[in-house]
C-alpha cells in the first residue's frame, strides 16, 4: 500500500527514510518525491504486512504520514474509454479490457498526474492528500 510522507522543514535535513528502513527492515520503495528545503511530499510504497510498524517508526520521529486510499479518481460519465491516458503513465496503471473499456490497477499509481493532463475529457483527478 502507499503512504504520503509530509516533510516539514525541520525533518527534511534528516535521513528519515533511511532510519525507518534500518529500524523496520521494510523494503520501502519511493514512488515519487517532491521535496524542497521548505518541505514537501514523498509517496512511498510499503509492504502491507509491515505497514503498522513503518507508520509507528515515522510517527515517533515526528513525521506525519497519511495512507493513500484512492490515489486517482475517474469520472465514468466523462470517460469515453479512448485510452489516451494509457501511453503517458510511467507505471502502467491503465490498460484496455477485452471489450476496449479502460481499467486501472491503482496499486501501481504514483499520482504523477500525467494522465490527468492527457485526458481530453477532464475525466481524471488526482487526490491531493
Amino acid at each position: 500500500m502507499k503512504i504520503t510522507l509530509h516533510a516539514t522543514p525541520d525533518i527534511t535535513p534528516r535521513p528519515l527514510i533511511a532510519e525507518v528502513i534500518l529500524e523496520t527492515r521494510a523494503l520501502l520503495n519511493i514512488d515519487r518525491a517532491d521535496v524542497k528545503p521548505k518541505g514537501g511530499e514523498v509517496v512511498i510504497d510499503v509492504p502491507p504486512d509491515i505497514y503498522d510498524q513503518v507508520a509507528v517508526a515515522f510517527e515517533k520521529r515526528g513525521a506525519t504520514i497519511t495512507a493513500l486510499e484512492q490515489p486517482l479518481i475517474k469520472d465514468d460519465d466523462e470517460c469515453v474509454n479512448c485510452g489516451a491516458c494509457i501511453s503517458v503513465c510511467p507505471t502502467g496503471v491503465i490498460s484496455f479490457r477485452e471489450d476496449w473499456s479502460v481499467q486501472m490497477d491503482l496499486d501501481k499509481c504514483v499520482q504523477c498526474g500525467a494522465c490527468v493532463t492527457m485526458c481530453p475529457h477532464g475525466a481524471l483527478t488526482v487526490l491531493k492528500s
Partner: peptide
C-alpha cells in the same frame, strides 16, 4: 496491440479515438 517498435525500442501506443464507442 499496445506496443510498436521504433528504432529498436518497444514504445507504448494509445489511441485518441475510442474503439469502445466506435463499436
Amino acid at each position: 496491440s499496445g506496443m510498436i517498435d521504433i528504432n529498436g525500442r518497444e514504445i507504448t501506443t494509445s489511441p485518441m479515438s475510442s474503439f469502445h464507442d466506435a463499436r
